[in-house]
């Protein structure tokens, strides 16, 4: 499956015209991307370190998970929208960037994990779940989102 056509389309789209013509607009959008990254990473860290028993041990893990989920969604939407806009500025270059595809792959893996597995699982009473499964889920989540963020930053360097 070749998706080059999508990048070609993005490169010719209205978004690309704007992101290429106005460096200032691109910069502002990138800042939203960064702020979303901070929020997303913060919620992931809090919830997963709680599941691992590192942080907030005296707050029920159900409360921590419920409170961070909402803001995770906000951060995800923010980074997704700003990310698409940023991609449009360098669409054709990204197609050949290995790190970009590493990020997209880990991002897709993360989406399936969060909405397909982690959330449905954590909707059960945590006390009835195996502590080892909870720990594995937390470590997996941390590894996925670290990989998304780190490979994302490396797109610019590679």
């Amino acid at each position: 499956m070749d998706v080059y056509f999508f990048f070609e389309w993005l490169d010719n789209s209205f978004l690309a015209t704007m992101s290429k013509a106005y460096g200032g607009v691109f910069a502002v959008v990138q800042m939203f991307h960064l702020l979303s990254l901070a929020l997303l990473g913060g919620t992931v860290l809090l919830a997963d370190l709680r599941l691992l028993g590192v942080m907030l041990r005296d707050v029920p893990s159900r409360v921590v998970v419920a409170s961070t989920q909402r803001w995770f969604d906000v951060a995800l939407i923010g980074s997704l929208l700003s990310g698409i806009f940023m991609s449009s500025a360098v669409a054709l270059k990204l197609y050949y960037n290995e790190m970009f595809w590493a990020k997209m792959a880990s991002f897709a893996i993360g989406l399936v994990f969060v909405y397909g597995i982690r959330r449905p699982l954590l909707a059960f009473d945590h006390a009835t779940l195996s502590p080892w499964v909870l720990r594995l889920v937390a470590v997996t989540s941390l590894v996925i989102w670290f990989t998304v963020a780190a490979s994302g930053r490396w797109i610019g360097f590679s």
């Binding site: 399936v112 597995i117 594995l136 470590v139």
Partner: peptide, 10 residues
């Protein structure tokens, strides 16, 4: 679900 989580995680 726990089994799927373990498999996916590994």
């Amino acid at each position: 679900l726990q089994r799927i989580a373990v498999g996916y995680g590994i």
